[in-house]
Amino acid sequence: MASLQPLTALGKREATAVTHGPLTITERTDVALASVAARKGRMADLSAAAQKAGVPLPGPATHQAGIPYSAFWVAPEMWFVEAPHATHELIADLLKSALGDAASITEQTDAWVAFDLAATDLAPLLERLCNVDFPAVPNGYATRTVMEHLGVYLVKHGPGAARLYGPRSSAESLLHALETAAHSAF
């Protein structure tokens, strides 16, 4: 019988963390992720079920932290919902039970790589990679943007803290882009 062991998006057994000057890039393997989309004409039902279940449904370009669920807006009546992987490995099933038939829910955990970026100031790094004016947007800002020809989601947690979601299949390319930009930014 085969002995299967999970690997991170970067092909390792443990999450990767790298430091370049003041910047730390940490691969996050401890986050479960699912998409939640309101079914046609069911937004009111979804809002009521989400409120009861403690699932935030923030407005456009916004991330809302919560326990155990956090979420960020990705499109009209659609969100990505995050939770700790240790307790929500089956996040899609848990959300389907909580939200019922008011939403279409899709497992997203293994489709994306998540990197947390930390530095005193991330602006010098991000201005080399994307068109988001990072210092001007508020904490809790979430948007889809492009970095090195890859569609990514960027969530601002503070002037020196952000989470980046990129396609899992391009995890190494995205990390390389971050490291390359860090060499010239710091």
Rank of each mutant, 00 (worst) to 15 (best):
46 L>T: 08
58 P>T: 00
180 T>N: 04
97 S>Q: 15
87 T>D: 07
35 S>E: 15
148 E>S: 14
33 L>Q: 13
165 Y>M: 10
121 D>K: 05
65 A>N: 06
161 A>P: 01
152 V>D: 02
148 E>K: 00
100 G>H: 05
114 A>L: 13
100 G>L: 03
68 P>S: 02
72 F>Y: 15
3 S>T: 14
90 L>S: 15
180 T>S: 09
89 E>S: 12
88 H>N: 08
65 A>H: 07
90 L>Y: 05
77 E>K: 13
139 N>E: 11
94 L>V: 08
103 A>G: 04
96 K>A: 13
123 A>R: 03
18 V>K: 11
107 E>G: 02
147 M>S: 06
60 P>N: 02
43 M>E: 13
166 G>E: 12
8 T>C: 06
24 T>P: 08
64 Q>G: 02
171 A>E: 04
119 A>N: 08
62 T>Q: 12
123 A>G: 09
79 W>I: 11
72 F>W: 14
112 W>M: 08
48 A>C: 04
87 T>C: 04
46 L>N: 10
11 G>T: 11
20 H>N: 04
180 T>L: 14
176 H>V: 10
151 G>M: 06
72 F>M: 14
97 S>E: 11
4 L>V: 14
95 L>R: 04
130 C>W: 06
133 D>L: 00
100 G>P: 12
121 D>A: 11
13 R>D: 09
177 A>F: 06
6 P>C: 03
181 A>T: 12
75 A>W: 01
33 L>H: 05
3 S>H: 14
89 E>I: 08
142 A>Y: 02
169 S>P: 06
97 S>F: 00
61 A>R: 12
55 V>L: 03
90 L>R: 15
3 S>Y: 07
116 D>G: 04
129 L>T: 07
162 A>W: 01
102 A>W: 01
13 R>C: 02
15 A>F: 08
171 A>H: 06
66 G>M: 04
177 A>R: 05
182 A>D: 10
67 I>L: 05
82 E>W: 01
116 D>S: 13
142 A>S: 14
90 L>F: 02
59 G>M: 03
144 R>A: 14
171 A>I: 08
183 H>G: 04
140 G>N: 07
43 M>P: 03
46 L>Q: 08
5 Q>D: 07
157 H>W: 05
122 L>Y: 06
